[in-house]
Design a protein around this nucleic acid. Structure first.
Length: 192
DNA sequence: CCCTGATTCGC
DNA sequence: GCGAATCAGG
């Protein structure tokens, strides 16, 4: 695969949208994320964030001060978006504000979970929520990176595994990790 | 472990 | 110019 105009354009678009190099590569197909990153750099549009560059002032001060008058260098300006191809029928409706993935609803103080032997109702709610979006995989479809949380009754047709992307390392997705790893405390000494 | 982007360097 | 390998975080 080569970098055709279309592909480059898609690359630019996605990169601009904040897509990761791997996602872009997947979308384009035929290239690896490395290829994408390499291209991104060659295109000169590496840093996507403008306000997060703290102390990394990578400046190439090479214009020899001694040099009286080398060739004119009228292109110190940021070459992010040279020009707008008139092809676009309408202006981009892209709000400058980057859309942050704010899945967390409101500011939850997130209690220190003292002696919570119960699963937080919040976590449970999350699970119910998630199970609607579950991939509903069968045992054989599970992989290293799919949530292995079982849902339903194994003795029924209505049984499946969550299948969502697992929380790195763990066997379950974020929601299920929440209910899987209980404080483990009570239950032990049930009265009898 | 898996994922990110950044860089290097032979092709 | 290209991108695998590698580096450096998270």
């Amino acid at each position: 695969m080569s970098w055709t105009d279309e592909r480059v354009e898609l690359l630019k678009k996605m990169w601009g949208e904040g897509q990761s190099a791997s996602q872009i590569a997947k979308e384009l197909g035929g290239v690896t994320r490395n290829a994408v990153i390499g291209k991104v750099h060659r295109l000169g549009l590496s840093n996507r964030t403008s306000g997060s560059a703290p102390a990394k002032a990578e400046v190439k001060e090479k214009p020899a001060p001694a040099a009286p008058k080398a060739e004119a260098k009228p292109k110190p300006a940021p070459k992010t978006e040279p020009a707008r191809p008139a092809a676009a029928p309408a202006a981009e409706a892209k709000p400058a504000a980057p859309a942050r993935r704010q899945i967390i609803p409101a500011g939850q103080p997130l209690p220190p979970q003292p002696s919570a032997n119960e699963i937080s109702p919040e976590a449970l709610a999350k699970v119910n929520e998630v199970e609607k979006k579950a991939k509903k995989l069968t045992l054989m479809e599970l992989t290293e990176r799919t949530c292995k949380w079982p849902v339903g009754d194994p003795a029924t047709e209505d049984f499946w595994f969550c299948g969502l992307p697992v929380e790195q390392g763990k066997p379950y997705c974020e929601a299920h990790v929440g209910v899987a790893f209980q404080p483990m405390s009570a239950r032990r000494d049930r009265r009898r």
